[in-house]
Amino acid sequence: MIEIIYMEDGVREHPRSRQILARFPQAKVLPCTHYKEVFNPSGQSFRLQKKKPALILARQTSKLIHPIPPSYGVGGTRNFYFSHLLNCLYDCRYCFLQGMYPSAHYLMFVNFEDFEEEIVSASQNSEEPSWFFSGYDCDSLALESVTGFADHFLPFFKKLDNAWIELRTKSVATRVLRDREPLERAVVAFSFTPQEISTQLEHGVPSVDARIRAMLQLAELGWKIGLRIDPLIDCTDFKDRYAKLFENIFTDLPEHTIHSVSLGAFRMPTGFFKKIEKHYPEEPLFASDLESKGGVIAYRENTEKRLKHTCFELLEKWVSPSKIFSCET
C-alpha cells in the first residue's frame, strides 16, 4: 500500500521508523533533510497525490499540542489537539485538509514521546481535566496499522488521571480498542453523514452500516461513544435522511454509552474552500448556496439554523439534550 517512504535523515535510526520500514519492505526509501522539502513546496496537486500518497517519516520539532476554543469541545473547558499524522487514508470531499496542506502525502511524526511530555505538562497545569483531540489533522484510527498510534497512546492516557482523549474516526479498524480494556477517560467518536451523502462525498470510507456495527461492538465492550454529526449537508430529503441515520445509529446503542453528540454544519475557511474548489471544479457540493462571512464559507444563517434545529429535534428522541453540542461556524 505504501510504495514510497520519504525519511528525514534525523529519524533514520528512530525505533519507530525502523518498525515502519520493516512493515513495508517493498517500499522505496528516499532520504530528505527536512520533511518540508517534500511536503511544503507549492505546485503540488493534492487531488493527484490522493491517487497514491507516499509516507513521510519525520520529527515534529515545533509546537506539539495546540489549544482549541471551548466552543469546539464536548463539555470540557481545557481543550487541545495534537497531530501525530497529517492527512488521511480517506478522501472526503468536504475535508478541510485538502485546502490546508499542499501535499496529500501522509506525514507522520515518529517522536511520540515528545508529544507525551507536552500532554503531561499541559494536563498538570490545571486542576480542571484537559481534553486532547487526536483526529484533527487525520482520522485517529484509519492508519493504525501503519502508525501504531492508538496502541501507543492508549496505555499512556490510561496513566493520566486528569486527561481525556478523543479518538475521532470513520474507520472500522477498531481491533486496537477491542483488544484492550476500555479506558475510563477516552471517547471513541464516530463521524456520520447519511449513506446517500457518504456515497457521494466520503470516498474510501466504510459504509455507514459497517461503522455503526463497529461502534456498537465498542459500546458493548464498555467504550464511551461520541457521535459527530458533522458536517451537516443540506440536501434533498434532509429530514428523512437524517431521521433514518439517527434511527440506525441509536436503536441499538444504549444511552449510557453515549458520551456526547455534536452537530456542525458544513463550513470551511474561505482560503481553503477556494483551493479545494480549484482542485474539484466539478463537485456539486461547492455549488451549494453558500456565503463567505468573516473568512469562512458556510451555509446562510437561516439554512444553518434550519439544519441544526431539525437535527436537534430528531436527536431529542434518542439522546438527552445535555449531551448534544453545537459546533459554531
Binding site: E3, I4, Y6, L30, C32, E37, V38, Q44, L48, Q49, K51, K52, A54, S103, H105
Partner: peptide, 9 residues
C-alpha cells in the same frame, strides 16, 4: 534545492 517528483503512477 532538491525536487521530489511525486510518484503516483
Amino acid at each position: 534545492n532538491c525536487f521530489y517528483p511525486p510518484q503516483i503512477y
